[in-house]
């Protein structure tokens, strides 16, 4: 039984290898599906619902790109990747893009040869403590036991922070977020540290969320964004500008509710260029004129995606903070559509 499938697949593989030389954009168009790498499950960012449909903030980016390229937000194959398999999956071409809350760092960009096309969420490492502990600043945590996921940058950031403040801590190594929740609630550690978005999502699941506080210190920069392989700039541009289209749409007030009306033509030339009623931006990308319109209609603009998946109306309840538009004092900023 094995053999039949093996050799069948090898035969298919032989034919598939021949067609791989073209660019990623052509591959995706020919395939009719976007292979998008996501996490195997992170609250608010990517998770399958009861019907097996993937939902979440990162998933929204995948769907926007699929809509821009193929005109269909459901033309996505979601490939769950773990922290260990994500980069090889992208490098080997198993996936066309990775939208998996991946921090943009120097070595990932330069050494691993990936192109981060932008940032869709500015995160940072924070601390959560029980209110009873009476701590209001991370600098008061001298001698605390800290639950920390092993083998991540958070571990290194923590060591740096405590050393530079000249205070001591005792690490309690844990493997997954679920384990961390259990350990923290059972009192095995005083403090739980991970990305602030993860802390908020974790706290939201507690019986008594008000009994725990997030400390004000954010001790690291974690710009999370979608990435593609080095060396295929046309494809990188498609993903980059699909993300930028979502951001610009929010800035210009284009939402999934009013987009049909706006696509008919407005007095704002930038909106017209974005939605393809003026200029030929889509053609430059190798897409049709309505590409950005499709991307925005897939799940709404950046702000709508944020509010729908991780914003204050959801159980996770993240404030926009750094992720507000630059016009509102945040860091979310798209280059102009011109």
């Amino acid at each position: 039984m094995k053999k039949s499938v093996i050799f069948g697949a090898l035969t298919v593989a032989g034919f598939a290898a021949g067609a791989a030389a073209a660019g990623t954009l052509d591959d995706v168009k020919a395939r009719g599906k976007l292979n998008c790498g996501v996490t195997t499950g992170l609250v608010g960012f990517a998770a399958p619902d009861a019907n097996g449909e993937w939902m979440g903030f990162d998933v929204g980016v995948c769907r926007a790109v699929a809509a821009a390229v193929l005109g269909d937000p459901s033309a996505v194959e979601f490939v769950p990747t773990t922290g260990k398999t994500r980069f090889t999956a992208l490098a080997s071409g198993e996936i066309d893009m990775l939208a998996r809350n991946t921090t943009w760092t120097f070595s990932r960009d330069v050494d691993l040869k990936f192109t981060f096309v932008g940032v869709n969420y500015y995160d940072g490492q924070g601390f959560m403590v029980p209110k009873d502990l009476g701590v209001s600043s991370a600098k008061e945590l001298d001698g605390a036991t800290v639950c920390i996921q092993t083998g991540t940058t958070t571990e290194l950031n923590l060591a740096d922070f405590f050393r530079s403040n000249n205070i001591s801590y005792e690490p309690v190594p844990i493997e997954t977020n679920a384990e961390a929740q259990q350990q923290y609630l059972a009192g095995a550690c005083d403090v739980y540290t991970t990305d602030a978005s993860g802390l908020a999502a974790t706290r939201a699941t507690f019986e008594d969320p008000a009994g725990h506080v997030l400390l004000p210190e954010i001790i690291s920069k974690e710009p999370l964004g979608p990435l593609v392989r080095h060396g295929d700039n046309e494809w990188g541009d498609v993903v980059r500008w699909s993300l930028n289209a979502l951001v610009t749409a929010e800035e210009l007030g284009v939402t999934s509710a009013n987009i049909a009306e706006m696509a008919a033509g407005t007095n704002n030339p930038e909106v017209n260029r974005l939605l393809g009623t003026e200029g030929n931006l889509g053609e430059m990308l190798g897409l049709d004129a309505g590409w950005a319109k499709n991307a925005i209609m897939a799940g709404g603009n950046y702000g709508e995606l944020f509010e729908g998946n991780i914003g204050e109306s959801t159980p996770i309840g993240l404030a926009r903070g750094l992720n507000a538009q630059w016009t509102d004092g945040g860091l979310i900023y798209s280059p102009p559509f011109r």
Partner: peptide
């Protein structure tokens, strides 16, 4: 993955 659903986290 199920735990990553906000309902069941």
């Amino acid at each position: 993955a199920i735990r990553a659903d906000a309902n069941w986290n």
